Computed example of a mutant assay.
Amino acid sequence: MTFALRVEAAGSMPAMYLRPWVEEDIPALTAECRDAAFRRGTGLALRDNDDAVRWLKTQQRGWEAGDRFSFAVLEPEEEGGFGTGGRLVAHVVLKTAAPTGPTAEVGYWTATRARGRGVAPRALKALTTWAFETFAADGLQRLELLHQVDNPASCRVAAKTGYEFVRVLPAHPPAFPAEGHLHVRTAG
Rank of each mutant, 00 (worst) to 15 (best):
A98G: 15
L143W: 08
R122K: 01
A114E: 04
T103W: 00
A114G: 07
A136S: 13
G107M: 12
G118L: 02
H147R: 09
Q59I: 08
A72P: 03
G116R: 04
L56M: 00
G107Q: 09
E64G: 11
R87W: 08
W55G: 07
D67A: 12
T112G: 12
A111K: 04
L140E: 07
L145F: 15
A136V: 04
G118M: 03
P76H: 04
L140P: 00
F82N: 09
A104K: 08
K95F: 13
A98D: 15
E133N: 15
E133C: 02
R113A: 10
R117H: 07
G85V: 05
G81A: 15
V93H: 02
W55E: 12
G139Q: 15
A111P: 12
G107I: 06
P121Y: 06
L143Y: 01
S70Y: 09
P99L: 15
H147F: 13
E75H: 09
A114Y: 09
E144A: 07
F132N: 01
D51Q: 06
P99S: 14
T96W: 14
A98K: 03
W63N: 07
W63I: 08
R113C: 09
Y108T: 09
A98T: 08
F135C: 07
V149F: 10
A72I: 00
G118C: 02
A72D: 02
G83Y: 02
L145W: 11
T84V: 12
T58G: 14
L127R: 03
Q148C: 00
R113H: 15
D51C: 06
A126W: 12
A137M: 06
D51T: 05
A97W: 05
L124Y: 06
W55L: 03
D51F: 05
K125M: 00
A137E: 09
R115D: 06
L56K: 12
